[in-house]
Amino acid sequence: MTSHQVVPIKVYVAVWAALSILTMTTWQVALIDLGPFNIIAAITIAVVKMLLVVTIFMHVRQADSLTRLYVGAGFLWLVILLGILLCDYLSRSWIPGGQFWPSGPAMIVGG
């Protein structure tokens, strides 16, 4: 396994520092009222943190191309799942007379 590059300790420590700073950032940004951009900021920071963990801690940067393809495919399927789900629910109110969700007591029991 000599072909596996050993990542220097300082790179791991730098990633850890970046993740910790981003955690504080996500908290500080959440305290400011940005309207719809609050959720966009939260998700963006989380995605940046995820990419740091995946590429460096999980060694995807050094992995072979088949593993990279798997990783990419996994996140692509997740985007398809959430994307199509939102296309349905967010577009319901666009139909004239359509309802986003039935209102009243019926909604509690899932009617």
């Binding site: 955690t23 996500t26 998700i43 989380a46 943190k49 963990v53 995946v54």
Partner: peptide, 21 residues
């Protein structure tokens, strides 16, 4: 690391939804 990533998303989505309020 995967379990860590799940928490990275759970924290802002569960704890900080209305933090600005």
């Amino acid at each position: 690391h995967f379990v860590d990533i799940v928490w990275i998303f759970l924290f802002p989505l569960l704890y900080l939804i209305g933090a600005h309020l």
